[in-house]
């Protein structure tokens, strides 16, 4: 950094942002990759059903398939909005 930089407004380094976003995205995509192709569709349909009753965002419904030995566990995680029933 040069002396004159003291007087300049420095933007946050964008490379750090890129890395952070990619770490999250890659982890997410890898988690989905091993799973069956129906998982994203299942997630979408579940979201539609849940939306009939509660107002939730896309990110609030997570469907995961975990392997535990020879057992597969389908995990459904729904974050309900704060405030309960409307």
């Amino acid at each position: 950094m040069g002396l004159l930089d003291v007087f300049r407004k420095r933007k946050p380094a964008s490379a750090a942002q890129a890395k952070e976003r990619l770490m999250i995205l890659v982890a997410q995509e890898r988690a989905q990759r091993g799973g069956p192709d129906y998982l994203p569709v299942l997630q979408r349909e579940l979201l539609e059903v849940i939306r009939k009753y509660v107002n939730v965002d896309n990110d609030d419904v997570q469907v995961r398939l975990d392997k535990d030995g020879d057992q597969e566990v389908l995990e459904l995680n729904v974050v309900l909005p704060a405030g309960g029933e409307e």
Binding site: A15, K19, M23, V26
Partner: peptide, 12 residues
């Protein structure tokens, strides 16, 4: 700070 480093790419 505007390009990811080799270490960043390796880590990701």
């Amino acid at each position: 700070g505007d390009m990811m480093s080799v270490a960043d790419v390796e880590e990701i």
